[in-house]
């Protein structure tokens, strides 16, 4: 289902959490709200779910051609998954998932058997068959997360909203669940919005990434576009892995990613800079060099292949030459910083 958000504002006391958000989300999309803490991404998500409301008269939220701005959570039919799951600890897994169906008014409540079928189907979908009678305290973090997901899906939500869905999990489980969520989304096709502060997660998982900063949207686009063509210095820096470099003889700063720097021998006269290798890290698919520029004394990071590293026989303390790719695809001036 599609979501349309117009000019959304929210202030808490004197703090402006959202300063005019405009966004359009299409059918079946998997959207990431990416930003540092305090950027307003969770506030925005809560508003989509009807758990928070914009300042009176400031903004509209339209889900599926219906204006839901003033509609409370209970009427909105959005599935919300909380950062710390918020499972009902006194209820079993089964009762948790069935909750949204059992609280319906008698007229629209499915029969006991229908509820049972639906719950078991959902538990199969999130790969938790056989755990119906467990209490949440008897599950691992990843399992609780999936119970929360099944519970949110039980009400056939128009949109699924996930608040830092992997925030509280360890790295390995995070990675597995991320992959699983991707294919899960393809399977169920519900429009999904999730909040994250991890740029890797957003880029890997989403169809569309919304980068937020200080209550505003900095950039919206598919992951690759965001990575290759950051619209603002903030996006450039927040996506990470970037050097600020001053070209010789020119006053303005440029952004350049580590893999866009070419390492050559110190004697190569085509080199733009000369630098000394301060640290060399080769325990990975490619080698990461920390370099100190000889003229400006700044440090920058550069990547090179392991093969090239071996061929050049470099080690810490060596002097090398650096070449910036002829026209780096992403190098907006950063003079504003």
């Amino acid at each position: 289902m599609s979501i349309l958000v117009q000019n959304l504002r929210r202030t808490f006391g004197t703090f402006q959490a959202l300063r005019g958000i405009n966004l359009e989300i299409g059918h079946h999309q998997l959207v990431a709200l990416l930003g540092p803490s305090g950027s307003g991404k969770t506030t925005f998500l809560r508003m989509l779910g009807g758990l928070d409301f914009p300042d009176p008269g400031n903004g509209r939220i339209i889900i599926d051609d219906e204006d839901v701005t003033e509609q409370p959570a209970a009427d909105r039919k959005t599935g919300f998954v909380f950062q710390h799951y918020a499972l009902f600890n006194h209820l079993t897994v089964y009762e948790n998932v069935a909750f949204g169906l059992e609280v319906r008014p008698k007229a629209t409540r499915p029969s006991k058997n229908a509820i049972c079928d639906r719950v078991l189907e959902l538990l199969r979908l999130v790969q938790l068959e056989g755990l119906e009678q467990r209490l949440p305290s008897e599950l691992s973090g990843g399992q609780r997360q999936r119970v929360a997901l099944a519970r949110a899906l039980a009400i056939d939500p128009k949109v699924l909203l996930l608040d830092e869905p992997f925030g509280a999990l360890d790295a390995k489980v995070r990675k597995d669940l991320r992959r699983w969520l991707r294919s899960f989304h393809q399977e169920i096709g519900v429009t999904t919005v999730f909040v994250t502060h991890d740029q890797q997660e957003a880029l890997e998982l989403a169809d569309m990434v919304v980068v937020m900063n200080q209550g505003q949207i900095e950039q919206v686009g598919p992951p690759q576009e965001i990575y290759d063509h950051p619209a603002t210095p903030f996006v450039y820096e927040f996506l990470g892995d970037v050097n600020k470099v001053r070209k010789p003889g020119r006053p303005d700063l440029f952004y350049v990613r580590p893999h866009e720097i070419q390492i050559v021998f110190a004697g190569d006269c085509s080199a733009d800079f000369h630098a000394r290798i301060e640290h060399l890290f080769a325990a990975g698919p490619s080698a990461r060099l920390t370099l100190r520029l000889l003229d400006s004394r700044e440090t920058i990071d550069a990547d090179m292949t392991r093969q090239q590293l071996d061929e050049m026989g470099l080690s810490e303390g060596d002097e090398v030459g650096l070449k910036l790719s002829a026209s780096p695809p992403s190098a907006p001036p950063a003079a504003s910083l």
Binding site: G49, G50, L51, P72, A73, A74, D75, R76, K77, T78, G79, F80, F82, Q83, H84, A86, L87, F88, H90, F99, G100, V103, R104, A148, R151, A152, A154, I155
Partner: peptide, 25 residues
């Protein structure tokens, strides 16, 4: 946790249902 009550609300529970089924037990 306030989130539990919010979860109940977003699942469609009325205030009364939220109290008796989530807060009280």
């Amino acid at each position: 946790e306030p989130a539990q009550e919010e979860a109940a609300a977003s699942l469609g529970a009325t205030r009364g249902q939220t109290f008796w089924r989530v807060v009280f037990p």
